[in-house]
């Protein structure tokens, strides 16, 4: 079960600076921890996040083991046209999740 919480304003005026907030469900296991019997808990993290606005990449981030579980990533962009934001998270063990949100620009 992986779920994402996306917050993009439903409407904006052309040229407005808007805030985009994303929260992704993930344990972000660092790979530096041990079990009670001394075995290493294998690393399991999200390694990359990207956001496309009507097909054009507007934001990208690389994630590392020091980032807490359930990464919250927020950033700003300029509302240029109505359309779709697409989000993609990629990580260890074949982790791959997508989400999208629409915006109307007047």
């Amino acid at each position: 079960m992986a779920s994402a919480l996306i917050n993009v304003p439903a409407k904006a005026k052309r040229g407005d600076i808007i805030e985009i907030k994303t929260l992704m469900s993930h344990i972000m296991e660092t790979g530096y921890r041990h079990t009670a019997t001394g075995e290493v808990v294998p690393r399991d993290i999200i390694t990359s996040f990207a956001c496309r606005y009507n097909g054009t990449e507007i934001f990208r981030a690389d994630l590392f083991p020091a980032i807490a579980a359930n990464p919250f990533i927020t950033f700003f962009t300029t509302a240029t046209a109505s359309g779709k934001f697409e989000f993609e998270w990629i990580g260890d063990n074949g982790f791959s999740e997508t989400a999208s949100a629409s915006i109307t620009v007047e």
Partner: peptide
């Protein structure tokens, strides 16, 4: 609620 990670469990 869009920042609260507890909401991820609520969604599940």
């Amino acid at each position: 609620d869009t920042i609260n990670p507890g909401m991820l469990w609520v969604l599940d």
